Amino acid sequence: MTSVTPISVNASSEKLVARLVDHAARLNVQIARTDAGTVIVDAGVDALGSADAGLLIARICMGGLGRVTRRTTLEHAPLWPTCIDVQTSNPVLACLGSQYAGWSLSATKEQTGGKKFFSLGSGPARALAVKEPLFTELSYRDHHDRGALVMEVDRLPPQIVIDKVLNDCGLAPDKLTIAVTPTQSIAGTVQIVARVVEVALHKTHVLGVALDEIIEGSGSAPLPPPAPDGIQAMGRTNDAILYGGRVHLTVKRDATAKRLAAELPSSNARDYGRPFAEIFTSFNYDFYQIDAALFAPAEVWVSSLESGMTYHGGAVNKDLLDTQWLANGDA
């Protein structure tokens, strides 16, 4: 029997990380190195960043196992002029084993010597640290000697957090790259909207569906301009997926396809129908008070390999997006 070498999400994304660093000027990102050699990529804190940087960082986030592109849609009455398209033939590993923002990284103000720091780490370095119970369920751990992590935060990480990442990942300082993408930055907006398939995979996991049922995943979501206010920027990126995200999954069994088509869309949630920033504010900025069913794409198609049939559920909410994103709410 021929043995199969496990996929390394860090090795698969290594060339993409090198491209991000080597083409920093073209991508409008800034590169800094700690005294020990850890590379910090500023894609929106002090640097302007760019949509191209966001696309590349999104691919890095997926461990090099997905395609992420920007598409202009100027046909009659498009959902939005620009969309982000995502495709992966390794959806569970790319989305949950790498892209999912599940690693909590924090430091107190005493530890930083200034302000407290908090960020959820995403990207392939998560699979080196395996600090989340999810990796036990996935039965996956990466062992590459280089790693990349993405932080969606509006400041560069303090050394104490960098040291924690290095220690937990078992990396030499010069083998780690951290990209920082604030939500209210161009690159940050792109890489968050590019999570449209990941959001569907996470909701599938929350529903208790066996992850080995999922074979292929693709999706798209509209790309809004970032808002200068952090809460509004977060609202826009969530609304893009919750009210404008479209996902197509291929699964093994017919029963799974039927169930996901019915239960996956965000319209199943109690809190559906209001802009996310409004929902978040109404719950005193506590994510855990929001109905978890809301975190899902707006519309899904689920194809069954067993029957060859495709099941459809949900719908985009163009009116809500237009009201939030267009000047004067013009539709």
Results as ranks from 00 to 15, higher is better:
residue 102 G to S: 05
residue 316 V to N: 02
residue 269 A to N: 15
residue 214 I to G: 00
residue 53 A to D: 04
residue 62 M to K: 00
residue 239 D to W: 03
residue 102 G to I: 06
residue 175 K to C: 15
residue 3 S to Y: 10
residue 119 S to E: 04
residue 84 I to L: 05
residue 145 D to F: 06
residue 269 A to W: 06
residue 108 T to M: 08
residue 242 L to I: 15
residue 302 V to I: 15
residue 176 L to G: 02
residue 147 G to I: 03
residue 72 T to F: 09
residue 72 T to S: 11
residue 53 A to R: 02
residue 49 G to N: 06
residue 326 L to N: 15
residue 294 L to G: 09
residue 67 R to P: 01
residue 186 I to T: 09
residue 157 P to Q: 08
residue 106 S to Q: 13
residue 78 P to H: 11
residue 20 L to C: 12
residue 133 P to A: 14
residue 45 V to C: 13
residue 128 L to D: 05
residue 282 S to Y: 09
residue 176 L to R: 00
residue 97 G to D: 04
residue 276 F to A: 06
residue 44 G to A: 10
residue 217 G to P: 00
residue 8 S to R: 01
residue 58 A to Y: 00
residue 153 V to D: 00
residue 326 L to S: 11
residue 52 D to L: 05
residue 131 K to H: 10
residue 200 A to F: 09
residue 155 R to C: 07
residue 235 G to L: 04
residue 303 S to M: 09
residue 323 T to Y: 11
residue 58 A to F: 00
residue 1 M to C: 12
residue 32 A to T: 12
residue 275 P to G: 12
residue 160 I to S: 07
residue 100 Y to M: 02
residue 277 A to G: 07
residue 180 V to P: 00
residue 330 D to F: 11
residue 161 V to W: 01
residue 239 D to C: 14
residue 55 L to A: 10
residue 120 L to M: 15
residue 242 L to P: 01
residue 2 T to M: 08
residue 159 Q to D: 15
residue 306 E to S: 12
residue 290 I to T: 09
residue 19 R to L: 08
residue 81 P to L: 07
residue 314 G to N: 05
residue 273 G to V: 15
residue 84 I to K: 00
residue 80 W to S: 08
residue 55 L to Y: 05
residue 64 G to F: 00
residue 49 G to A: 10
residue 141 R to T: 11
residue 29 V to L: 04
residue 290 I to F: 09
residue 122 S to E: 12
residue 225 P to H: 13
residue 10 N to A: 07
residue 176 L to I: 08
residue 38 T to C: 10
residue 306 E to V: 10
residue 150 V to T: 07
residue 256 T to N: 06
residue 163 D to K: 07
residue 284 N to D: 15
residue 147 G to V: 03
residue 298 A to Q: 07
residue 272 Y to L: 06
residue 315 A to K: 14
residue 150 V to G: 03
residue 279 I to D: 04
residue 44 G to D: 06
residue 27 L to R: 02
residue 256 T to L: 06
residue 151 M to Y: 08
residue 305 L to G: 06
residue 202 H to P: 01
residue 99 Q to V: 08
residue 41 V to L: 08
residue 301 W to T: 09
residue 45 V to H: 03
residue 143 H to N: 13
residue 235 G to D: 05
residue 190 V to Q: 04
residue 151 M to H: 13
residue 67 R to F: 05
residue 154 D to H: 06
residue 276 F to I: 07
